[in-house]
Structures are given as structure tokens and as C-alpha cells.
Design a protein around this nucleic acid. Structure first.
Lengths: 201, 201
DNA sequence: GTCTATAGAAGGATAGAC
DNA sequence: GTCTATCCTTCTATAGAC
């Protein structure tokens, strides 16, 4: 399947890459159009030939970043070789590691910081990320015979919530930006244990 | 106990109030020193007589906002008239409503957005808010005879996590900025139920 | 489309009088 | 401490040549 995006100009691609890099690293206000042009190795006039304003460039970038940034729950196959606990551990580990990735954090940061001035970003983020992830996990939960879940949507939210604990909170404000693997696994284990005590048959 | 703060000038107070208002509403980059001076009804020179730079004014404001903004778990008395479930419901309701308040959201937004450029903010936020709240709730949990909690610190984090679900996430990115009371109570109820299924004796 | 050069506005910070 | 007036830099955006 050939996308029409293939025909886009290399300069435009360079601009998008540079702007994505800079915006996610420093935020909207701290990045100038000059800096983007320099980073993309392009003149400022070219930049404005492709994007009518800094606002629209920013919105374009964040929206497409949201779409590309689906929570990794799409491939939740039912692995017959794993029991519910092992499966949840694997899923939880993937999700928490995704939450903690620089890029993921940066997008949430941007949307949270700028959603007041760019209201469309909130929806793009929610639909591309959390809503989708919740739907996928809820669907998976319904297929698990060992669980008793009165409301799978709520249970799915709660599983995400159990993963988003102190470690995540600390990382989100710049403390322990690179949590070690053992700490991550400990959070996942605790989440799975609590979740199963609440919902296991 | 008379604070030395009582002797601070009214202009300084006006500046702090105006700057707090503007920064929390619009973020660091979108607020100019001109705007702060105007809002405080003060000249820009006066502003710079009290604060050496925009950076320091911002850091001062956010840090003190973090300190004043303790998670409302300080008054976790052991109410003999309430059982564990009713108590948890009351506590959870207070906490989630606190999380959802404009001011609380705004501070988290600011710290998250600017902690890269102002590293001291991350710690001020974490110590003033989450760390304190977790400690208080953990202490309360140890005093509940009806619960079996292997690690109260982890359980406390998890309770907060169970409250910070979709409703909170949506509010944080500008969707449903004013959740209705019924929705809040539903989240609290679900959190308490799950928590108790996992940790009740 | 792409560049160089620049307009025009706004921002952070300060000088100097009182 | 407080003001008015201003400096200098940086920013968004555009004009005009190719």
C-alpha cells in the first residue's frame, strides 16, 4: 500500500523531523522558527512556504505524533502457552515501558501544556493513545476465562492506573528519568498481583 | 507565630499574586514580564527590583505553590463511626477532587512542562505533593485492622493510581475540564471496591 | 520552491529621575 | 522603592530575486 506521503518533498520531511525533535525536547515556547530552520538546514522562507505559521506547524506535528503513538496493546494475542498472570505481566511490562519512554512522556507533556491554546490536541492525544489502549485491553480481558470482571472498561483503566504509580509520576517531573529495569518490574509485579487479587475467579 | 512575611511590601505581594495567576493559567512561555507588571498594576522596573529575572520569579512561584499544595491526606483521622470501606470512600473522594482542581492540575502541568529547564521544581513538587500524600495514606493503612497489606507504601501508591484513571487523564488534557460529581463518585467507588477486594482481610 | 535580507512587533532587562 | 522611557535582542512573518 503506497501512501501519498511518499511524494512529499524532502525539505518538508526535514522540517517536520527537525520541528518534532525540537518541540518534543523543549516545548512550544522555547523553540523558534529560526531554530527549526537551522536544524532542518532550510531557510526560514522555505519553512513558511510549507507551513503557514508556527502554530499550525506545532499542531500538525503533535497531532501526527499522537496518531503514531498508539499504546502497544494492539497485538494482544491470546497466548495459550501463558496463564493469565504471566500474560498480564508481559502486557504490563510493555505498557509501563512505553509510558516511560522519552517520546511518550514528551508527547503527554506537550499536549498537557498546550491543550489550553490548542484544544484539538487533547482529543487527538486521547483517541490515539489512552482510548485505544483501554479498548484493546478491555477486549483482551473479556477473553480471559480465569477472570471475573464486571466492567472490563473500568478494569482496564484501573490496570493502567496501577502501573502509573510513583515511579511514573517521578519520571514525569524529571526525577529518575531513567528508571532501572528492576524497579519497573517491581511496579508491574505489584500491579498484576493487586489486579488479580481483585479480579481473579 | 508572626511570620516575617508579614513585613513584605504590598507591591511584592501584588506581583506574586499576578504572576501566579498568569503563569498557572498560561504557562511560562506565554506570559511576559509586561503582562505581569500590568496585571499587578506596577511598573516593570519595580518588578525587577523585587525579582532579578523572569526565571527566578517563575521558580519562586512554582516552588511556593508546590509547598502550599499538599495532598489533603494530612487529616486522616481514624473515624470510629466509619468502617474501612466508608472511610476509603471519603478519603478517595477528597483526593480525587483535589487532583481534579484547576490549581492542582495547573501546578502539575507547569512542573511537568518546565522541569527540564528548572530541575529543582521536580523535587519541590514531588516532596510537597505525592510523597507526602503517600506517606500519610500509608500510615493510615497500617492502622486499619480490617486490611491485610504486605507493603503499605505500595498499596498507597496503588490507591492513588486507581483514582487517576480515564477521568483524570481526560481532564489533564483539557477534555471534560469540569467532571460532574456522579462521574467522580463512580471512579472513587470502583477504586475502593478494587482496592478492598485486593487488600481486605 | 528556495534563497537572502529585512520589516515590524514584542520580549527581557536597565538607566536615570524622584 | 518606584516610576517613565528606552536599549538591545529575538521573534514571527514577508518581500523580492532567482
Amino acid at each position: 500500500m503506497v501512501s501519498i506521503e511518499d511524494s512529499e518533498s524532502p525539505k518538508r520531511r526535514a522540517i517536520l523531523n527537525a520541528a518534532t525533535e525540537l518541540f518534543t525536547a523543549r516545548g512550544y515556547g522555547a523553540v523558534s522558527m529560526d531554530a527549526i530552520a537551522r536544524e532542518a538546514d532550510v531557510s526560514k522562507a522555505t519553512l513558511y512556504a510549507h507551513f503557514e505559521s508556527k502554530d499550525r506547524l506545532f499542531a500538525t506535528i503533535v497531532q501526527s505524533a499522537c496518531q503514531e503513538h498508539i499504546t502497544p496493546t494492539g497485538e494482544l494475542a491470546d497466548d495459550a502457552a501463558l496463564d493469565v498472570e504471566a500474560s498480564l505481566r508481559a502486557i504490563g511490562g510493555r505498557i509501563l515501558r512505553f509510558f516511560l519512554r522519552d517520546r511518550t512522556m514528551a508527547i503527554y507533556r506537550l499536549v498537557m501544556a498546550e491543550s489550553a491554546r490548542f484544544p484539538e490536541l487533547g482529543n487527538a492525544f486521547y483517541q490515539g493513545g489512552p482510548a485505544n489502549g483501554r479498548r484493546m485491553l478491555a477486549a483482551w480481558l473479556t477473553r480471559q476465562p480465569g477472570l471475573v470482571v464486571p466492567d472490563v472498561a473500568i478494569a482496564a483503566e484501573q490496570f493502567f492506573g496501577l502501573l502509573r504509580t510513583d515511579l511514573y509520576l517521578r519520571a514525569s517531573v524529571g526525577l529518575t528519568p531513567v528508571p532501572d529495569e528492576a524497579a519497573i518490574d517491581a511496579v508491574v509485579d505489584a500491579a498484576v498481583q493487586t489486579f488479580l487479587r481483585a479480579y481473579r475467579l
